[in-house]
Amino acid sequence: MAGIKKGRLVPILAGGVAAVAVAVGGGLWWIDKQKYEKTDNAFVAADKVTIAPLVDGYVAEVLVDDNQAVRPGQVLVRIDPATLKARLAQAEANAQALEAAVSAVDDKARLEQAMIAQKAAAVESAHAQASWADSELKRYGALAREGWVSPQRAQTARNAQEQAIAGVSQAKAALEAERRVAQSLGSAKDQSLAQAAAARAAAEQTRIDLSRTEIRAPVAGVVGARGVRVGQYVRPGGALMSLVPLADAYVVANFKETQVARLRIGQPVTIHADAFGDEAIKGRIESFAPATGAEFALIPVENAVGNFTKITQRLPVRIAIDPNQKLAGGLRPGLSLEVKVDVTRDTGPSFAESGGRPTRFARQGATQ
């Protein structure tokens, strides 16, 4: 009996240990489940910038290498500027010619003002001549009626008076013609000014295009996907390389829709990257996406069919990385991650309260 009891004791003890282990493990799992929400459907992302030229031409220099860190404003590529320099010289010469045309119109306008003054003086002179001829006609007419002078002399005075009146009309017409010429010069000046402004704008545009032959880094980052080479002919919009701002990398974690109810903006997040082994990185929830990942797919899922099967959807959650960590700058976009959110922290708005609107709470918390 003692041997049988001893033989039964080992399984009983083993079963007891197993039961205790299951109980302890289940308890730990339950505690962990209540405190954290986890997902391994997460990756590193960054707002990379595609570098493309704004002018066409042949590449004269490529001043960066693959995987090189660059600072904002640093020259990345130079395009041969010879053609644009020639265009700029031509545009500037054209602008100068049109500005000279404006000056010529001004000079002619001043000359016309002098001519108008001269014609106005001629009108005054014609009026004076007409007045004198009228007085002569009156005097000789009276003398002719009294028989002191011959009728021919009176007729001569009448002819002179008519010529003087015609001279007044002629002088007035000449004055009006000069005034009309002056008005036309005003219109010609406006046209010349518009043409000169267009020429200056064209020269400025060419000057801008010339400055764009030096392609500079818009942000700080690391060069990637460099496909440009010296001698290559490039066109506006063609991708030359990409800049990845590693310092501004963030995490996109896709949580199941059954998990997001307990998530809040600002909650602390522990991040594990396969590339870093067991070392953890700290972060905070920054915002919730406005739709599930399926809504942004190239081919949206059509659920209005008869064979519909409910599938748990995932919602992208953006997580800001605390910058004051030695591994923060080592994350590369595309790396796989496992994230764990401490949902016991009652911080910012919840998923339902935020409405998908990003706030400054998490960004401020990440810098503390």
Score class of each variant (00 low, 15 high):
327 L>Q: 05
154 A>G: 01
232 Q>H: 12
312 T>D: 07
146 E>M: 13
39 T>R: 03
332 R>G: 00
95 A>C: 06
326 K>I: 13
336 S>F: 08
236 P>N: 06
155 Q>G: 01
285 I>F: 04
355 G>D: 02
149 V>K: 06
174 A>H: 04
233 Y>W: 13
86 A>N: 14
77 V>D: 13
81 P>K: 06
320 A>W: 01
303 N>G: 14
89 A>G: 02
155 Q>W: 01
141 G>S: 11
190 D>K: 13
106 D>K: 03
146 E>G: 11
298 L>Q: 13
192 S>E: 03
47 D>L: 02
217 A>D: 05
128 A>G: 15
284 R>M: 01
125 S>F: 08
33 K>G: 15
365 G>N: 05
273 A>F: 12
293 G>D: 14
259 Q>R: 01
341 V>F: 05
179 R>A: 10
286 E>P: 00
135 S>W: 08
192 S>F: 01
283 G>L: 04
177 A>Y: 03
276 F>I: 08
224 G>D: 10
330 G>T: 09
296 F>S: 10
226 R>Q: 07
133 A>R: 02
77 V>G: 10
36 Y>G: 03
158 R>E: 14
118 Q>F: 02
318 R>H: 09
135 S>N: 12
193 L>Q: 15
87 R>D: 12
119 K>D: 09
277 G>W: 09
18 A>K: 03
265 I>Q: 07
243 L>I: 14
123 V>C: 00
199 A>P: 03
124 E>K: 07
74 Q>T: 15
23 A>N: 05
221 G>Y: 10
89 A>S: 14
321 I>K: 10
190 D>T: 15
320 A>T: 01
182 A>I: 04
38 K>E: 14
200 R>N: 05
63 L>K: 05
128 A>V: 11
150 S>A: 11
114 A>T: 14
183 Q>A: 14
50 T>D: 14
272 H>L: 03
70 V>K: 08
48 K>L: 05
218 P>W: 10
247 A>R: 13
107 D>S: 13
146 E>D: 15
45 A>E: 15
234 V>R: 10
356 G>N: 11
358 P>R: 06
110 R>I: 06
359 T>C: 11
347 T>F: 02
20 V>C: 11
314 R>S: 10
199 A>W: 05
72 P>N: 01
247 A>H: 14
99 E>P: 01
273 A>Q: 09
356 G>I: 13
171 A>W: 08
123 V>H: 00
211 S>C: 03
206 T>C: 07
355 G>S: 07
215 I>S: 14
330 G>V: 02
267 Q>Y: 04
118 Q>M: 07
181 V>P: 00
77 V>C: 12
288 F>N: 02
106 D>R: 03
137 L>A: 08
73 G>V: 06
139 R>V: 06
45 A>M: 09
212 R>F: 14
267 Q>E: 04
117 A>R: 10
122 A>M: 10
131 S>K: 14
45 A>Y: 12
311 I>C: 03
48 K>E: 09
148 W>P: 00
282 K>A: 15
246 L>A: 06
172 K>V: 15
28 L>F: 15
155 Q>A: 09
19 A>W: 08
146 E>H: 12
322 D>L: 07
321 I>R: 09
345 R>C: 00
62 V>T: 05
284 R>G: 01
77 V>W: 13
272 H>R: 12
60 A>G: 08
83 T>K: 15
85 K>A: 13
268 P>M: 07
298 L>E: 12
344 T>K: 03
248 D>N: 15
